[in-house]
Design a protein around this nucleic acid. Structure first.
Ligand SMILES: NC(=O)c1ccc[n+]([C@@H]2O[C@H](COP(=O)([O-])OP(=O)(O)OC[C@H]3O[C@@H](n4cnc5c(N)ncnc54)[C@H](O)[C@@H]3O)[C@@H](O)[C@H]2O)c1
Ligand SMILES: NC(=O)c1ccc[n+]([C@@H]2O[C@H](COP(=O)([O-])OP(=O)(O)OC[C@H]3O[C@@H](n4cnc5c(N)ncnc54)[C@H](O)[C@@H]3O)[C@@H](O)[C@H]2O)c1
Lengths: 214, 214
DNA sequence: CCCTGCTTGTGAACAATTTCACAAGCTCTA
DNA sequence: TAGAGCTTGTGAAATTGTTCACAAGCAGGG
């Protein structure tokens, strides 16, 4: 079984988004060329990405939109519902918990946790903030959720260790710090300051990007 | 002038974060090995990344922490203040506007814009929400800010076109849609749904990741 | 002053990813 | 049934990014 690049998975996710659009508009087929234009990539890339998982298209015609949508959902594991735990009932946590885009894709917020006694027990969106102490007891190992970490950097690694010990095998981290997890746990980090700094770099050093500008 | 990979810039940003830590703790020097461990990369990677910009270390000793910190700030363009415009006074916009991490790095929110008449004019953190109409007049082309796009996907491309026309040359986009900009404009997108779907994929297809699992 | 022990800086090897290019195959038309 | 016109699927080539390995060079001790 071939290793799939991270970049490929991200693109699959994007193909799915646009295929869903086309599907609701009733379009029957889409060529790799059309998908590429929608997603800002190249036709060859689209075909190569899909070819890792099977051969879904018809030569001369393109890909059947509705069918490919279903295939991609399955590949990405989106036929099922995923439970999501939000750790940290702060500003970022609040934005995420109410984010419609997640629910649309089958991610449902199963709980919100915080260690601030003033927040615990308070209503928060449709949920009630739970104490960190309750974490282990709340978790069902057979259906371990995805954890979203939205707490300050200082406590992050300790909380991650605790989540991992409790059976969580996927974590989306927003704290701007390096987190380590055992190999069987999947970790993704979103670091917004880093993105802004990337823009700062690009604005400051146009020469390093536009090959050969003086 | 050599093209610098995106991944390199992201790592520079991370090196800077940890060097600042070491600096405040008074540590004089740091080896590529130490930095690598802090940042979750390899010593060779650290040295190669830095070598693109000069030779900052002393053989046998390592890198002078304070000095390298300054160099990295300069490379990343962080000696100066960057003005940031937030477009969309919603939940994500609110989280970002109050995010301490940005101000710490020299990014200051210069304005918040929205097209909802009920939000325009309302106080919002330390700012007051301004109408989209005011955008062009507010912008000073000689000191164009970085724009953060926190509005729904539907209107995103139109607003981007308008920002670009008004002189904005760097945009951080949170709307989950493909945006196109002319080549002289820098665009980064953060797509959280895509990250979650990446986790879903990893949980669903362990075989595609752990080389050769049956 | 020279030797020992480290650590950098970097070309070259390697690995991963993207792009190319084209044979194979489908549909439609006559 | 044959031919035209597209578009897929995929090895091979090209490009991009990471890791290796080692000469060069500094500090500190004898
Ligand atoms: N606000 C943003 O726009 C933004 C952007 C990028 C990254 N981040 C990062 O996201 C994280 C959260 O940011 P925020 O703005 O929501 O902060 P916040 O202060 O609004 O919220 C943090 C919450 O986490 C809780 N908390 C702290 N330590 C905890 C622990 N050990 N266990 C459980 N709960 C704990 C606090 O009680 C608080 O409710 C930070 O790491 C921040 O750097 C925030
Ligand atoms: N909330 C989240 O956690 C989250 C996570 C990831 C991505 N996003 C994305 O970020 C964007 C904003 O999300 P949100 O949750 O803050 O939404 P929101 O509805 O809370 O806020 C959106 C704001 O944008 C304003 N707006 C809409 N169209 C506009 C236009 N053309 N010009 C100016 N202002 C306009 C609205 O009046 C509203 O105030 C969306 O694209 C969403 O998909 C949100």
């Amino acid at each position: 079984m071939k290793r799939i690049a991270d970049s490929t998975v991200r693109r699959l996710s994007m193909y799915l988004r646009y295929l869903e659009d086309l599907d609701t508009r009733g379009q029957q087929t889409a060529s790799s060329d059309e998908l590429a234009h929608l997603c800002g990539t190249t036709p060859a890339q689209v075909r190569k990405d899909l070819s890792f998982f099977g051969s879904f298209g018809k030569r001369g015609l393109g890909y059947p939109v509705h069918e490919l949508t279903a295939h991609l959902r399955e590949i990405l594991g989106l036929q099922r519902e995923w439970k999501v735990l939000i750790i940290g009932a702060g500003k970022i946590g609040a934005a995420l918990a109410n984010y419609r885009g997640f629910r649309q894709r089958g991610f449902t917020v199963a709980g919100v946790y915080d260690n601030d006694p003033n927040k615990v027990g308070q209503p928060w969106g449709e949920a009630i903030v739970r104490p960190m102490d309750a974490l282990e007891a709340d978790l069902n190992r057979d259906d371990a959720p995805i954890a979203v970490l939205a707490i300050p950097a200082e406590g992050a690694q300790a909380v991650v260790d605790r989540l991992v010990k409790a059976g969580v095998r996927a974590i989306l981290n927003f704290a701007p710090t390096q987190i380590t997890v055992p190999p069987h746990v999947n970790l993704k980090s979103v670091n917004m300051a880093m993105e802004l700094e990337g823009l700062s770099f690009a604005l400051t050093n146009p020469g390093y990007l536009d090959e050969g500008a003086a």
